[in-house]
Design a protein around this nucleic acid. Structure first.
Lengths: 338, 338
DNA sequence: TTGTAGGCGTTATCAC
DNA sequence: GTGATAACGCCTACAA
């Protein structure tokens, strides 16, 4: 009974029990083909018997990699982010990686604190899944530090503020233009845009596309609201009180729901009196009434694309950006004329 | 220019640049009070200049703890789990811990694979946030291994299947009984129960409470469905086709929404023809129409309670279970008579 | 107050 | 095909 001291059995315990050297045990773990079938069996048996599990700490100390990626997300409790987290968790698992989750609560302070502790945490890559703007110089500097440490950073939305970051190369400007234009063409009246406070990179694209679509003389109705139901509901209520609005393009599905509830509270029916469109596609959009017409990429597709990019980055390959295209998923809240 | 080789600067680089020993640098990091103000400044300056960050790998190899907790969740894209993940992420951060996220997709195979790799990943604690049943012996064995390694496991719902696991000590049986009874008393007709497939520990509590409330002769309408909107919608549709139902108690909010949509598709109005109640409280419940009346603890409260338990477990303290009480949040889908 | 030295568990290099 | 040995970066007795 070569009892391992207490707690973990180490590679040495296994070696002793199997009557071989540490090196051989290590080989069985990492290059089983370079070892005799006989010793292989012996070692495996010993490892099993001792419930041996190699120490991740020792391993990463030795070879520099941790097998971990960090997922920084604006707010996991929002449906799009939740779906993204789910997909990324699964795909990371397939790639043999684990995922560290950091919920930012849309706070740049929080983001900065996380970014600053990441190099020390030791992650192999970072996925930055937020549409929030990065304004503080310290945040950018923290990103630079990650880059210096050779840790790739991927973003789910194109952003010029995050230097060195890889992104999907997807631009919402044209989709937003087309959507705004279609809503304006539905004859309900002026179209408004609901974007997150601080207007991040995604918001800027939406605003640009929205402005592109505005016919001369049409009012510019761009409203900033917190990224959730409550914020959007309040903002939409205020908007509807002060302006005549026939269509609302909301960045997220919860924001679209908020806008719809605000409209309903004012006796407006969707889509009869007012049409509504969301910039993200999540299952929830089909589950509410009226079901929400959405635009562009779903969380799963985003997640897949990001993870492919990530796999390439981790393997040191040059990443060919998969073209992501926006499509309109027509439901009840807005049915474009055709 | 004491250039650190390439990549990371180590404690030794800092020591050299500051003209002190490694020990002193380490002390500056861990026991700053035991060091002269002068050397403290010198070392801090050097560390700053080199962008030094201590290696988490080396640290945990040395002292055995990783500063990481694993969060295993049935499906993060579901609102309750998303909210839980958010809360736990924030609280863990406050405690100085990082969170590894593992989405189980309600698959026990996945769960087992994760559990088996956890000791090797090196986490300080595990939060098991799923209501799914644990049936395979390998799963239980994997839990035992964690226990042997001294890694505490916390669950969000009381379960007798997970040996050694700490849980909140909250039982849904009585709340489920009261809710069923109230719905039955509303005079709409027989009450049905929608629970997740496989009926896990939470489901068993709901079923028990449901059965408690059934008056003699009332039909037992317990339906198992996947834990999401689609599954519940289909199950509710089938149920409504084969039985006369006046009330539905659904385990989750998405399931309740699915039931409501199925009812609507059959021309039934909620709550006029049919009342609906959900066993979990999430913001979404207030955002849909009809807004859903819910029962018992919210994700944040659960998250807080779990993290308090966790903090105690990690500190080796005996954990006093905070009493969690179920409350009814009355919205549109069911207004109890009073 | 500060420095010296040894070891945490693993893998890579080099011999045999 | 297998084994000895030296790191990886940090912490902590123990000594000075």
């Amino acid at each position: 009974m070569t009892a391992p001291e207490r707690g973990q059995a180490t590679i040495l315990d296994v070696a002793r029990l199997a009557g071989v050297s540490r090196t051989t045990v290590s080989r069985v773990l990492n290059e089983p083909e370079r070892v005799t079938a006989d010793t292989l069996a012996k070692v495996r048996a010993a490892a099993d018997r001792l419930n041996f599990v190699p120490s991740a700490a020792a391993r990463s100390l030795r070879n520099g990699r941790t097998g971990t990626i960090a997922l920084l997300v604006g707010d996991v409790s929002q449906p799009f982010h939740g779906g993204l987290a789910k997909t990324i968790s699964h795909e990371a698992d397939d790639l043999g990686y684990s995922v560290m989750l950091y919920d930012l609560a849309h706070s740049e302070t929080r983001l900065r604190r996380v970014l600053e502790k990441l190099p020390k945490q030791g992650v192999d890559a970072v996925v930055l899944a937020t549409a929030d703007a990065l304004v503080e110089p310290e945040t950018l500097q923290a990103l630079d530090v990650l880059h210096e440490h050779g840790i790739p950073v991927l973003t789910t939305v194109d952003r010029d503020d995050a230097r060195h970051a890889l992104s999907l190369g997807f631009d919402y400007r044209e989709p937003a233009r087309a959507a705004t234009s279609a809503m304006a063409g539905s004859g309900h009246g002026p179209v408004a845009l609901l974007v997150g406070t601080g207007i991040g990179p995604l918001g800027r694209q939406l605003v640009a596309g929205y402005l592109d679509a505005l016919s001369p003389g049409a009012p510019e109705l761009v409203v900033e609201t917190p990224y959730d139901f409550d914020g959007a509901q309040a903002a939409a209520a205020a908007l509807l009180d002060r302006a005549s609005v026939g269509g609302i393009l909301a960045a997220t599905v919860p924001m679209a729901i908020g806008a719809i509830r605000a409209a309903e509270a004012r006796g407006l029916r969707v889509p009869d009196d007012l049409v509504v469109l969301s910039g993200e596609e999540v299952p929830l959009a089909a589950q509410v009434r009226p079901a929400i017409t959405t635009l562009s990429a779903a969380a799963e597709r985003n997640g897949h694309a990001i993870m492919r990019l990530l796999a390439d980055a981790l393997a040191g390959r040059d990443a060919p950006r998969p073209p992501l295209e926006a499509e309109l998923v027509v439901r009840e809240s807005f049915v474009p004329a055709r």
